[in-house]
Design a protein around this nucleic acid. Structure first.
Lengths: 143, 143
DNA sequence: TTGGGTGCAAATTGTTTGCAATTGT
DNA sequence: ACAATTGCAAACAATTTGCACCCAA
């Protein structure tokens, strides 16, 4: 499994993008940065806040996540199932694999697929701006 | 009773999957099969129905599209922007490229990407069940 | 001080569902 | 005839927004 150095969340991160350093924003940043689950829905974050005794509204969670996304602090994904999931953007692009039995999310990188995508877009006269690749998988059956 | 046969097997298709041949289902199948836009939202279909003077409810459109999806007659996609888009499943798997300036949807196939995906899933001990790949592109600038 | 930020409730959006009336077979 | 299907409105789920109050800078 790929390893990435943990990065402590600082108030600098917020100021840098022109957002006031408020309690809700710090708590949410904290949760996203230290969660066992890297990919969380707004409700996931909200639930953790409640567990921690923080009195922060769900609407605020959504607002903050949107601001973070606009600021490039988090990335938002739309996997199957309605809710958006957010993850801290720690650089390093990757795609996702979702287990349809356990819901587990696995990240992976594949340079070959990346460049093939660029080639394909180009072949049609376009520039690749962004992409979304999600593999829906199930555990290989032992036999 | 307006009756036009542009697609061959339409009513057969419905019976084949155990769905009664009703007016709403035929109209919707018709629209999906003859639309200039291959990828339509439920509202898109509903709007065309209204334009054609058909008195079919939006709820029915959703219900029928769901049944069609379950029956494998249509494929449902979740591009960015909330609404689901549906397209007739005419066999031949393909992925999509969406122009972020015009909204145009282009289909493409790439066997290499397909097999790479399978390999990746396998490498992690999974079986690839399904996938979603969407390229968000913009027209290459002329210079 | 003061304009951005927040909580809460109400509003939206996209989609589903309950039910009585209608229709295909 | 009789179960499947439909239309309509109400119900839902996820997310957004209006507004009066609150708090970082």
């Amino acid at each position: 499994m790929p390893h990435r150095a943990e990065r402590v969340v600082e108030s600098q991160d917020l100021r840098k993008v022109g957002l006031k350093v408020t309690h809700p924003r710090m708590r949410i940043l904290d949760i996203l940065g230290s969660a066992q689950k890297k990919h969380m829905t707004a409700e996931d974050v909200y639930r953790v806040l409640l567990e921690q005794g923080d009195d922060i509204g769900l609407a605020t969670v959504y607002r903050v996540l949107n601001q973070f996304e606009a600021a490039g602090i988090v990335v938002r994904h739309h996997f199957e199932g309605g809710q958006s999931v957010y993850e801290l953007d720690q650089g390093g692009h990757h795609d996702h694999m979702v287990c349809i039995e356990t819901g587990k999310v696995i990240e992976f990188q594949n340079a070959e697929i990346e460049s093939l995508q660029r080639e394909i877009a180009e072949k049609y006269g376009y520039e690749l701006e962004d992409h979304s690749l999600v593999l829906y998988v199930r555990p290989k059956k032992a036999r």
